[in-house]
Amino acid sequence: MVDRVGSEPQYEVFADEFLEHARDGLYNAHYDRPACLELLGDVDGRTVLDAACGPGLYAEELVARGAHVIGCDLSPRMVELASQRIPSGEFHVHDLNHPIDWLPDSSVDLVLFALAVEYVDHRTELLRELRRILRPNGALVVSRPHPTGDWLRLGGNYFETRVIEEVWSRGWQVRYWVAPLERAFEELRAAGFLIEQLVEPRPTLAGAEVDTERYQRLLTQPTGFLAIRAIPDPRRT
């Protein structure tokens, strides 16, 4: 049984294909991105770290809303695509299993960590790093697959934290962690965060035109993602 995801940039081999898929796809453009952007709130004039930035689709919208964006991703090709998409951004190739030593303490207002925590082996340590670089009045927005949806699809022991290996519909081979909701919350607590808001998103109406069947499923079943806004716990230094 595999017990770690590792530091291989899995999305490197299909980065361009992923950009094409995520730009207007139901799950990204009409489901996760709107939910995360709403939780981030007003970003005008604020510095945002886009952790695991992918090809820069979230960063593009953040810049359009007035943010200064710093991004990082494990995949060099993703960083290249993001840099091309947002010339004003600052993007780095970085493995989030390691300290973000190129950012000082209290240097960003917001952190976006969309659909990537499940690829990190050392999650609590990473979340501590994100808390370190956040200003005291800052916030972290993290989205991830809904644990109930994972369990309904995969079966087995819902409470077991384990690594899954799959081949997705486009032939993309992926390896990632699944964990119960309590584990996700405990990692945030252990890293010094308080959960301010939890959202189980519904797709935007425009998503019905992209994929009617999956749109209806996301409206009625916990088979997609969830998103959390967390703030640094002021009781902890």
Rank of each mutant, 00 (worst) to 15 (best):
V2M: 14
G6L: 11
E8H: 05
E8I: 10
Y11C: 06
Y11I: 06
D16L: 12
E20N: 10
A22E: 14
R23W: 09
L26Q: 08
L26G: 04
P34V: 08
C36N: 13
L37A: 08
L37K: 04
G45P: 08
R46K: 13
L49M: 02
L49E: 07
Y58P: 02
Y58K: 05
A64Q: 10
A67F: 00
I70H: 03
I70K: 00
L74G: 00
P76H: 00
M78L: 02
V79I: 01
G89Y: 01
F91W: 03
H92M: 06
I100A: 07
D105I: 06
D109E: 07
V111G: 01
L115Y: 02
L115N: 05
E118N: 07
V120T: 02
D121F: 06
D121Q: 07
D121L: 03
L126Y: 01
L127A: 02
E129K: 02
L130H: 00
L130C: 01
R135K: 10
P145M: 09
D150Q: 08
R153Q: 13
L154I: 10
N157I: 13
E160K: 06
V167K: 11
Q173W: 10
V174A: 12
R175M: 10
E187T: 03
F193G: 06
F193K: 07
L194E: 13
E196A: 09
E200H: 07
L205W: 14
A206D: 15
V210M: 11
E213C: 08
E213P: 03
Y215K: 07
Q216D: 15
T220K: 12
L226Y: 12
L226T: 08
P234W: 06
R235Y: 11
R236I: 14
